[in-house]
Amino acid sequence: MSRRRLRLLLFVPVAAVLAGVLMWGLVGLPSFGSPPHAYAAYLLKHEVGQRHVTNIPSAIVFDYRGWDTLGEELILFTSVMGTALLLRRGREDTGERPRDKAASAAVRHAGAFLVPVVLLLGIWTVSYGYLTPGGGFQGGLICSGAALFLWIAGSYRLHRGLTPTPLVDAAEGSGAAAYIATGLAALAAGQAFLAGFLPSGTVGSLLSGGTIALLNWATGLEVAAAGVLIFHEFLEEYIQTVPNPSPRQEER
């Protein structure tokens, strides 16, 4: 019997038990659409008064549960480091990078138009992250999408040239470091780690939030750099399989 078949045979009874327990637990949850539990009700009622931030999930991510978000950030950081280390180590250096180029003029023009639009959308999503829907996590990923558009619209050389690896590596590290530094600054100000020690500002203005705004930007930087680093590593893998186009094609 193959290992796979044995595994599937073992899976059937185990999955049946797991499905039973899982469904039992899920069915026992408060019914769908019922009012929020006490913790959420407290936050909904008092968050704006306490933190002066109109996007309540952002206030939770970067303030009330700022410690959990630090954990998430470190998972993100180590995953990206692991990806980069794994892919960089096993790669044979072929020296010359192949020249690839977007073949279609429509792709080139639409892509070139979308690069600044996507970048601006990402920065907007980060900067208004604590006022309206958005935040460092979402906006950061959108920003990294702009780097991908550089490859789609231009070439791999352009993509790597405009996002130099040392800069992206440094942004990734300093995003994570800025998050921890904000937490330590709260300690230095005589408060708990990651406590909001800066003035909260006026509700609904870009200057509101205090440390929430700082942590939001630190996260945006880190997530954007993480996305770009992942694109670098996987595109480098892909690009090695692209044959060099003949010189005639390149002249066109």
Partner: peptide, 21 residues
């Protein structure tokens, strides 16, 4: 409930990175 939304939004991004790994 904003708490579960905050949990989900951080995890969506982290899951993308974990998939990359």
């Amino acid at each position: 409930d904003p708490v579960v939304q905050a949990l989900t939004l951080t995890d969506v991004v982290v899951s993308v990175v974990a998939l990359a790994l």
